[in-house]
Simulated scan of single mutants.
Amino acid sequence: MNRRAWARLPAGLLVVAVAAELALVEVFWLPLRVGGVLVPASPVAAVAGNLLLVPLAFRLTGSRLVAAAPALVWLVIAVAGSLRRPEGDLLVTGGGAAGFVNLAFLLLGVIAAAFAVGRVMAAPVTARRTGSGTGGAR
């Protein structure tokens, strides 16, 4: 790795850490109720977070691989929340209105992550320009 890549590493790690924290908060917001009414804050946060953090990671690091990391971290945490732990704990459950919000969280979050990563991967590579920019050597 060159010196420039090492300088961008902390920014990439910071964005991935923010993505992990946001994913954890989103999973714990799934059963959020205000006055007994289920509030679907997690699907909205999942879409917004994935659509913002992936391009931010790309902009800060210039690496497409690092840009995909926030989406991958979100997916790992969301799937881990839907798996039953040995103690019997389950964070992402199914059934009723809560099941609908949980499904929306997983589905919309994955779609937003895939869309954001796809946009970053399809972005044109900006070549470094050298020369005076006048169009020819004299």
Rank of each mutant, 00 (worst) to 15 (best):
G62C: 05
S63G: 11
R64C: 06
L65V: 14
L65T: 09
L65M: 08
V66K: 07
A67L: 10
A68S: 14
A68R: 06
A69R: 07
A69L: 15
A69F: 09
A71H: 06
L72G: 15
L72K: 07
L72M: 12
L72F: 02
L72Q: 04
V73H: 00
V73G: 02
V73R: 00
W74N: 08
L75M: 06
I77D: 08
I77L: 15
I77E: 02
A78L: 13
A78V: 13
A78D: 06
V79M: 03
V79D: 07
V79A: 14
V79R: 09
A80V: 10
A80I: 05
A80R: 11
A80N: 08
G81F: 04
S82Y: 01
S82L: 03
S82H: 04
L83T: 03
L83S: 07
L83G: 10
R84A: 03
R85E: 13
R85D: 14
P86N: 12
E87F: 04
G88D: 11
G88N: 09
D89T: 00
L91F: 15
L91I: 05
L91P: 00
L91W: 12
V92F: 02
V92P: 01
G94I: 09
G94S: 12
G94A: 14
G95C: 07
G95W: 07
G95I: 09
G95F: 08
G95R: 07
A97I: 08
A98C: 06
A98K: 04
A98D: 13
F100G: 07
F100V: 10
V101Q: 02
V101G: 08
L103F: 12
L103I: 07
L103N: 11
L103Y: 08
A104S: 04
A104G: 05
A104P: 03
A104Y: 02
L106Y: 01
L107S: 10
L107D: 05
L108K: 00
L108W: 11
G109T: 02
G109I: 01
V110R: 14
I111C: 05
I111F: 09
I111V: 13
A112R: 05
A112H: 00
A112L: 04
A112V: 04
A113V: 02
A113T: 08
A113D: 02
A114H: 10
A114K: 11
A114P: 09
A114C: 14
A114R: 10
F115P: 04
F115Y: 15
A116D: 03
A116I: 01
V117T: 02
G118A: 11
G118N: 03
R119N: 12
V120R: 05
V120L: 07
M121G: 04
M121F: 14
M121P: 00
A122H: 05
A122W: 05
A123F: 05
A123Y: 06
A123W: 03
A123C: 04
P124C: 07
P124Q: 10
V125H: 08
V125S: 15
V125N: 12
T126M: 13
T126Q: 15
T126D: 15
A127L: 15
R128T: 13
R129H: 06
T130E: 14
T130R: 09
G131K: 13
G131T: 12
G133K: 04
G133E: 00
G133L: 03
G133T: 00
T134N: 15
T134Q: 14
G135M: 03
G135N: 10
G135T: 03
G135Q: 09
G136R: 13
G136F: 11
G136P: 01
G136Q: 01
A137C: 06
A137Q: 06
A137E: 13
A137H: 10
